[in-house]
């Protein structure tokens, strides 16, 4: 029995959600007395691999095959399953990131494993049956799933547990997987990565704006506010439908579900479909000129006022706070 945690990298750098997955795996390891092995696929330098020891990983398996320098869903799933088999892992943890969502079902199918998708809690272990909670009905409910199969794959929702440091010494092993040519048919042609931006699913703070902003030209102040706070920007559905903002920013029932520490909603009415995607945020701030806007009913803090008046003042206030 062993625990395998797959940690994703972007251009060679491990992601915050990956360290969260490592800490999650470590917590299961501590509870069940199993060692945690981390798996990295791609071109990652030794320093970063050794750095995993800070999070309690005692062994890192590094796959640096040239054919796998770019993400190929099918091949990565095969490699993760192969490594899981080789170390006889009965628990496989990964982040439920965009790529993780593609990998998890394929890995689970290969291993005949039970899959906890979008886990938001550590497992409650009752012998072979593990209970794990996930968000369901787009944030309107929480479902408790019981995993009964002997092998378990857990895809952890980003931002639900914090990465915690637990220094250990780490041993790095290079691994040469058996990659079938048929698993490599997908070719990455181009990657457009905004490296200066904080990815929305991982952001601790999200500044979101809606139709109340009147037009795309008014997003400058939203971006400035996000900048001051080190936040990601988001928007309501009509805003991305109108092309004011890119689709990636659309949050809600039919967009991205996010759970930041702080969600600031500006000029968004708070329709049920919007709330579905943001209601697990820890703190919600609403700025709206309509005191009857439904969003105030779920907010922790609110300002009734015109966004064009309030947001510039808020930028100044946050700047003053940061400088102080």
């Amino acid at each position: 029995m062993a625990i395998l945690v797959y940690i994703e990298n972007i251009a060679g750098a491990f992601k915050k959600s990956g360290y969260e997955a490592v800490s999650y795996a470590k917590a299961i390891g501590d509870a069940t007395g199993q060692p945690v092995t981390a798996l990295s696929i791609g071109k990652v330098d030794t320093g970063s691999l050794e750095g995993l020891g800070r999070y309690g990983v005692s062994k890192v398996i590094a796959v640096n095959t040239e054919q796998l320098h770019q993400f190929v869903n099918q091949a990565y799933a095969a490699v993760i399953a192969e490594v899981a088999n080789s170390i006889q892992a009965t628990t496989i943890v990964l982040s439920n990131s965009f790529s993780g969502k593609g990998l998890a079902p394929r890995i689970a199918a290969k291993l005949d494993a039970a899959l906890a998708d979008g886990a938001i809690t550590l497992p409650v272990i009752k012998g072979d049956a593990w209970e794990i909670k996930k968000s369901a009905f787009s944030g309107k409910a929480i479902a408790t799933q019981e995993l009964t199969a002997p092998i378990k794959v857990i895809a952890l929702t980003p931002n639900t547990i914090e990465a915690v440091e637990a220094q250990t010494t780490v041993e790095i092993e290079a691994f040469q997987p058996q990659v079938a040519a048929t698993d490599l048919s997908t070719v990455v042609k181009d990657i457009m990565q905004a490296t200066d931006k904080i990815p929305l699913p991982e952001a601790n703070i999200v500044v979101s704006a809606g139709r109340g902003l009147k037009g795309p030209e008014n997003w400058k102040m939203i971006e400035e506010l996000a900048d001051v706070l080190g936040a990601a920007t988001a928007c309501s559905k009509p805003v991305s439908d109108a092309g004011w903002r890119p689709h990636e920013e659309h949050v809600g029932q039919t967009g991205l579900a996010v759970s930041p520490n702080l969600y600031i909603a500006i000029g968004i009415s708070g329709a049920i479909q919007h709330l579905a995607g943001i209601s697990s945020s820890k703190t919600i701030v609403v700025i709206n000129n309509d005191p009857e806007a439904p969003f105030f009913k779920v907010a922790d803090y609110g300002i009734v006022g015109d966004a064009f008046d309030v947001v510039p003042k808020l930028i100044d206030a946050f700047k003053a706070y940061k400088n102080h």
């Binding site: 689970a108 005949d112 494993a113 039970a114 899959l115 906890a116 209970e131 909670k133 369901a136 944030g139 309107k140 409910a141 929480i142 479902a143 408790t144 799933q145 019981e146 995993l147 009964t148 199969a149 209601s279 697990s280 919600i284 609403v286 105030f296 009913k297 779920v298 907010a299 922790d300 803090y301 609110g302 300002i303 009734v304 006022g305 015109d306 008046d309 309030v310 003042k313 808020l314 206030a317």
Partner: peptide, 24 residues
């Protein structure tokens, strides 16, 4: 391989604390 044993509804939110727009 797994099944859902039960559901919870998230705790109700609210009790918004309002801040005056001139005292942000």
């Amino acid at each position: 391989l797994s099944h859902i044993t039960h559901f919870d509804t998230p705790p109700p939110r609210g009790n918004v604390k309002l801040v005056d727009k001139d005292h942000v």
